[in-house]
Amino acid sequence: MTGVLENGRVTLEELKEKMAEFARERDWDQFHSPRNLLLALVGEVGELSEIFQWKGEVPRGLPDWKDEEKQHLGEELSDVLLYLVRLSDICGVDLGNAALRKMEMNAIKYPVKLCKGSSKKHTQINVDNSNVNGESGGAATDQGINSYIKSTSAGDDV
């Protein structure tokens, strides 16, 4: 197994192949069931969480962190990514395409005009104010978002 790629970038497909090769060389496929990989992933997320535990909010770029802390963070982030890529491979899920599809679904759930600058969940968009249909309340929110989507896809400006 080789180290860094020539261009310095790696795709999810290349990571998937490298992880499969890594497991195959060690005869670990027998242990890489979806359940086992998920539990390993959860454990790594816990280790990642420990890094931030008790630090409170930290600024982007982590300017006050030591190089060793950032290196440790990179290692734990990598563990999470690698288990996630391996789990998706074992489950037969194209992670890149699944992620793009999920982003498209989120763009529909969270249209810019309705949620820009807000941290509300899609079920709470316009619960406090009238929604795009002029109705109030959570039950009407999905109808309002659906109406908004239909109107913007038809070229209307709401």
Rank of each mutant, 00 (worst) to 15 (best):
W65E: 08
E6V: 13
K150M: 13
G61C: 09
P59T: 09
E57K: 12
G8N: 06
K120E: 15
Q30W: 05
G117T: 03
R86V: 01
L62C: 10
G96T: 05
R9D: 10
L100S: 05
G134W: 00
L81Q: 03
A139I: 08
Q143F: 12
E68C: 07
I51E: 08
L15S: 06
G3W: 06
D128W: 01
T123E: 14
Q30C: 12
A40N: 11
G137P: 08
D64M: 05
K18M: 08
A140F: 07
G3N: 06
S153K: 09
F31R: 12
E25R: 12
K102Y: 11
L84D: 02
N146S: 14
A98W: 02
D64G: 05
I149Q: 02
Q124Y: 01
K70A: 03
G96A: 14
L73D: 01
N146W: 05
L84G: 15
T2S: 13
H72R: 12
E69I: 07
L12Q: 03
V10E: 15
A140Q: 13
S118W: 06
K109H: 05
L100Y: 08
S49I: 03
N129M: 04
G8L: 04
G43I: 07
N126F: 00
G96Q: 12
N97T: 14
E75A: 09
S119E: 14
N97R: 13
N106D: 15
V42G: 02
N106R: 13
Q30F: 02
A139N: 04
L5E: 14
N133Y: 00
S119H: 12
D27R: 08
M105Q: 14
N97D: 14
L39F: 13
D128F: 02
L15Q: 08
A23S: 13
G155F: 10
N126H: 06
V80R: 01
I90D: 02
E14I: 13
E47T: 08
H72V: 14
N129Q: 14
N106E: 15
N146I: 10
V10Y: 11
V112G: 02
E14C: 10
N131Q: 04
D64P: 04
Q124D: 14
C91L: 14
E104W: 09
P63C: 06
P63Q: 03
Y83C: 11
V58K: 01
K16V: 05
A40W: 01
D79V: 09
M103R: 15
Q143C: 06
K55L: 14
E69S: 06
L37E: 01
N133C: 03
E44S: 08
S151I: 03
L82T: 07
E68L: 11
Y110A: 04
V112C: 04
K109T: 02
S49L: 03
V112M: 02
G56M: 06
W54R: 05
C91H: 02
K121R: 12
D89W: 07
E135R: 00
P63E: 10
L95R: 01
V93I: 15
S147K: 01
G134L: 00
Y148A: 04
S151F: 01
L37V: 06
